[in-house]
Every structure is written in C-alpha cells, then in structure tokens.
Computed example of a mutant assay.
Amino acid sequence: MTENVWPVVELRQYTLRPGTRDVLIELFERELIETQEAVGMRIVAQFRDEDDPDRFVWVRAFPDMDARGAALTAFYVDGAAWRAHAPAARATMVDTDNALLLQPASAASGFVLPDARPGVRATDLPESRALATIYYLDSPREEFIEFFDNRVRPVLAATGAPPIACYVTDPTPNTFAALPVRRASVFVWFALFDNAARRAEHFDQLDASQVWGTEVRHELAKRISGPIERLRLAPTARSLLR
C-alpha cells in the first residue's frame, strides 16, 4: 500500500454525450491509464456516477505541482497516446471543466492506495461503492478542518462511513493552463463501502442519528456556503481505488 506520495489531486467530473459513458470508460481503461502513469502521474480512480448516467468521475494525482505541469505537458502536448485517442475521447464529451485541484487536509489524510490495479483485460465490476462529499466552505479552512475532525468525523464513523481520505482546495496557481480548474474553496471527503446496500445503510443511520440531526448538521450548515454535493459512485473494472 502507498500513502501520501501523491499529495496533489484532481477530482474531475465529466459530462458526456448521452449513451457514451461506457465508450469512454472502455477507451480510458484500455489506452489512457498506463500512458498517463508513464509520464509521472497516478490514476487513482474511475467511477460511474450512479445518479447521472452521462457523468464520468475520475481522480488522478501527482507528486507536486511542478511535476503536475511536467506530466500534463508530456501527456497532452507531447504524448503519442493522447494524440492518437483524443478524437475518440472528445467525441464523448460535453464538458470537462468541472475539476477541483486538491491537497490533503492534513499530513495523514491522503489516499492509501494499493500498489497494483486489475490488468488491462479486466472487465469484472467490483461490488464496492464510493461516496465523495464536497462542502463549499464559508469559514477559514483550518477552522473547518478542526470542526470536521472533532464533530463530523465521529458521526460518520458511527454511521458506517469513516472517511478514507480528506482534501481541501490547493491554492497553488494552475501549472497547466490548458486544463482549467475550479477555484472554489472546498473540503472533500471520501468513503468506501462493501456494496451499495452498506452505503444506503449509512444514509439511513445518518438520518436517524440524534447527534447529527439536532447538533452537527446545524453547526455544519453555518460553516458552508451552499448545498452539500454528494457523489454516489461505482468503481470501474480497473479503478485502483475500489
């Protein structure tokens, strides 16, 4: 298992043309994982958004911001793989600008990843499910991190969703301007579940939690600037995070 050697993370949500998501995933998993990793990035996860059949969500990571700029240049500008497959990939895409540039909320809050992923011929889909939750902050970042660790995290753990990773907006200037990133101030946490039923149980338990309902939820609302964004995600066959 590898921990925190990839501290710069992109959370990318792509809106696709109707009916093309599986086309993009097949292309991505056959041609665009190893070729990105070969130039210095790590493809952390690929997901189907279970609430939007035309959304592909994925996560990639880098050792640092300078390495990010170099790796993206090597892949998108100089790389043969993207040159060959960009037309087919772009034919599925409507919008690719919904991207957040993130860093770990603390030294120990980054993804812990397995060292190997399923092979290029893998087609079996894992039963596991993920949840990515995005809070748009209306309070100082360090204050929110302390609040989350002290008040929110215990409730999540008690209701079956202990966070496996927590990130905040990375304020560093974008080192690859050809790919825009959103500059909202966010806190993002991720959880994994054995299956969809376990994730549904978490939501049921959260709704029934007296601590959540009478205290923590209201305290959270005072610290964020808008609705909570929850992404219910199904890992693809070759997702490293699963």
Rank of each mutant, 00 (worst) to 15 (best):
N195P: 12
S185G: 01
L206A: 13
Y136E: 02
R217E: 00
R199M: 07
A191Q: 07
A165L: 05
F176Y: 14
D207P: 00
A177L: 11
P171E: 10
N195H: 03
D207H: 08
E146R: 11
T172Y: 11
S185W: 06
V152D: 03
P163M: 14
E215Q: 10
A161H: 00
F187M: 08
H202E: 12
A161C: 11
Y167N: 06
I145Q: 03
A161F: 02
F144I: 13
V155C: 14
S185K: 07
G160P: 08
E142Q: 09
T169V: 11
G213K: 13
D204I: 08
A196H: 06
Y167H: 05
R153M: 04
F203H: 15
F187Q: 15
S139M: 05
R153W: 01
P162N: 12
S185C: 13
L206S: 07
E146L: 11
V152R: 07
D170H: 13
A196L: 14
V188C: 07
I145N: 05
G213M: 01
R217D: 02
F147P: 14
A165K: 03
F193A: 09
F190C: 05
V186N: 03
L137Y: 04
A161W: 03
C166K: 13
D170R: 08
P173Q: 13
G160S: 08
F193Q: 08
W212I: 08
D170M: 12
R198P: 10
P163I: 03
E142Y: 07
L156V: 09
E146A: 09
L156W: 12
Y167K: 00
G213A: 01
P162F: 02
L156G: 05
D170S: 08
V152C: 07
Q210D: 05
A184I: 15
T214I: 01
V168M: 00
F147N: 00
A196C: 02
L156E: 01
D194T: 11
D149K: 13
F193G: 09
E142F: 00
A165Q: 11
V181M: 14
Q210I: 11
P162D: 08
L179S: 12
N174K: 04
R182Q: 14
V186A: 14
L179W: 04
V186P: 11
P154V: 09
F187Y: 15
R217V: 01
A197N: 02
P180H: 15
W212P: 05
D194W: 02
D207R: 12
T214C: 03
Q205K: 12
S185N: 10
E143Q: 01
Q205L: 10
D138P: 06
E143V: 05
L156P: 09
A184L: 15
R198K: 08
S209P: 12
R199I: 03
A200V: 13
V168L: 07
E143R: 10
F193P: 12
T175E: 12
R198D: 15
F190H: 02
A200R: 09
D170C: 04
V188N: 00
T175C: 13
R183E: 05
R182D: 10
F187T: 13
F187L: 10
P140H: 00
A196T: 00
G160H: 06
Y135S: 10
P154E: 07
F187N: 04
R151H: 15
R198C: 10
F144S: 12
